[in-house]
């Protein structure tokens, strides 16, 4: 019975992290599908989300307002990032684009360090500190917030892509840029929009996780890479795949660090990444082979 509770405990914490990875992974997936670029700066938008919401909340704004403003601010930064770093390099090769986005990530991280220093900041949880007990395992209210809001965001994203004009235009531009242009869709605008959307998702992940992990300037890199693993594991082409990839990754990590050794927690993600790439490169739910560069 105790073993079971322990297992459940790992699964709860795994699902919490997994939801965060899924949100970050969706950011990768949206940009990749729109532009065939892997945006290695993605994790920095998570960090910005966390630090900006903490700053707003320290200014005395109410938490809901601070959350919304933080996500909005980081979205603007995502749009600016596309405009300043990606658009001028339109004809660059895949390798150059990798370096550009890594350079962008380094730059953002460096600026955050200048602005906030190397200290870690806390944000109070959205509601209550008291853990809830469920079948012998405990779960923080913030974890429930994370899972619920992630679910809401994923459903919202799916609805946006399928039922709004803008979402349909984005999908069209990603499936066939030439044809999309012919029917009057401005593809470059869609690309910029995809960066904004993916920064927003990253920021959402950041504000959600801030009460649990604290915000610090260098938190983004590893989170970004994990989200990237989630996206590849599930299959970059499918929203459901990325979410599944994130949750699987979170649970696998939690189990491995609980049952084997916590030091190798981070290695698990990349081990699964390798196994998936070697045996099922399109991802677990990959529907179509992705563009190879």
């Amino acid at each position: 019975m105790e073993k079971l509770a322990e297992l459940l405990q790992y699964i709860f914490s795994g699902l919490t992290n997994g939801a965060i990875y899924a949100l970050i992974g969706l950011g990768f997936s949206i940009i990749f599908n729109a532009t065939a670029i892997i945006n290695f700066a993605q994790g920095e938008f998570v960090m910005l989300g966390a630090l900006v919401v903490i700053a707003f909340s320290a200014l005395g704004l109410s938490l809901p307002l601070a959350l919304v403003l933080a996500v909005a601010a980081v979205t603007v930064m995502g749009l600016a990032f596309e405009r300043l770093a990606i658009r001028p390099a339109r004809d660059a090769t895949a390798i150059s684009l990798i370096i550009i986005t890594v350079g962008g990530g380094v730059l953002i991280k460096g600026l955050a360090m200048l602005l906030w220093g190397k200290d870690a900041y806390t944000l109070p949880p959205f509601s209550g500190q008291e853990p809830l007990t469920l079948a012998g395992a405990t779960i923080l209210p913030q974890s429930l917030w994370i899972m619920a809001l992630t679910l809401l965001l994923v459903v919202g994203l799916e609805a946006f892509l399928h039922f709004t004009i803008l979402g349909k235009a984005m999908r069209a531009a990603s499936y066939n840029p030439v044809a999309a242009r012919l029917v009057g869709i401005r593809v470059s605008q869609m690309v910029q929009f995809s960066f904004g959307l993916s920064a927003a998702l990253g920021a959402a992940a950041g504000v959600l996780i801030a009460p649990i992990t604290m915000g610090v300037y260098d938190m983004g890199t590893m989170l970004g890479l994990k989200g990237f693993c989630a996206a590849v594991i599930g299959g970059l082409g499918s929203i459901f795949g990325v979410v599944l990839g994130g949750l699987l990754l979170g649970v696998a990590e939690a189990l491995a660090s609980g049952l084997v050794s916590s030091g190798y927690r981070d290695a698990v993600a990349f081990l699964i990444l390798l196994l998936v790439l070697f045996f099922r490169p399109q991802g677990l739910i990959g529907r179509r082979p992705l563009r190879s560069s």
């Binding site: 770093a85 390099a89 660059a92 550009i100 350079g103 962008g104 380094v106 730059l107 460096g110 600026l111």
Partner: peptide
């Protein structure tokens, strides 16, 4: 770090 990141981007762009 900031300048290094900036140089990477500018050279590549």
């Amino acid at each position: 770090v900031v300048i290094f990141g900036l140089i990477l981007m500018v050279v590549m762009i």
